[in-house]
Amino acid sequence: METQLLFQLILNGLIVGTLYGVVGMCFVLIYKASQVVNFAQGEFLLIGAWTCWWLLTAWNIPFFWGFLIAVAFMMVFGMAVQLVVLRPLIGEPIISVIMVTIGLSIFFQALMKWMFGTFAQPFPPIFTVDKVNVLGLQVQTAYLLSTGVSVAIMAGFAWFFKYSRMGLAMRATAFSQQVAQSLGISVRQVFALSWGISAAVSAVAGVVVGMVNGVSSALSYFGIKVFPAVILGGLDSIFGAVVGGLIVGLLENLGQFVDSQYLKWGNLYEIIPFYALIIILMIKPYGLFGTRDIERV
């Protein structure tokens, strides 16, 4: 029935929304710490998922260890990207920085297609039960796990930024790089670490999505979907990214509901976040929780 479908879609929206939220958080983390807009965020998901898949299928490593190795690899990978590609561009205009991440994005996307092909590859089965019944709705086990993991990651982020030394250093750097430096915080380390963490957490999200939909280059689309989410929430607000992610996830699925029931347009599902994006930019460019830039002369 329709209400059944609606509830199912809302649930899907919340689950996908948390994933968007996690990826959005990673995006905001990089933006806050190093003022870089990372257009290659989706590729972090992609590379992480492929690495994990490759470890699992080619080497028959148990899922837990394969997953850990992939995440660790992505941590190093993220730092390496920052060190090799982004560091020379510190102080360059924003166009150059955006373009270099776009360049990274198409480079790695093509590389992944070349190495692993264009077809979606399923993960080896990890759970014995494929779907679980939650309040009368069918939910994939992997999705349940993903929500659990996402919430855990969000809690971890909250703890990290509130209590850990490095997290505090990162917040200080985001506040003012000069002040942070004069207090003895290594800004270079913070930059590298923020990229590392972001890549590693993105890889977790990538693996989770890959478990449900199979690993394919479609994963990198998350990196684009993240823009409506972070703009909605405010570019420099981690909390905003989570809220934005949830809203975008819900919006997509509600769009699909309206589309399938009434409008019959086709892929409103994919396009509606971008309409929302344009509208937000027109009326409230700094998002729900973002800090407003005030320019003084």
């Binding site: 360059e92 990274l104 480079f107």
Partner: peptide
């Protein structure tokens, strides 16, 4: 892999130019 190689080279050219010859 030639299509992918081309895409990769486009990306690589953009990155290298931005770093070495902005």
């Amino acid at each position: 892999g030639i299509t992918y190689l081309r895409e990769m080279l486009i990306g690589l050219a953009i990155i290298l130019f931005l770093i070495f010859e902005p």
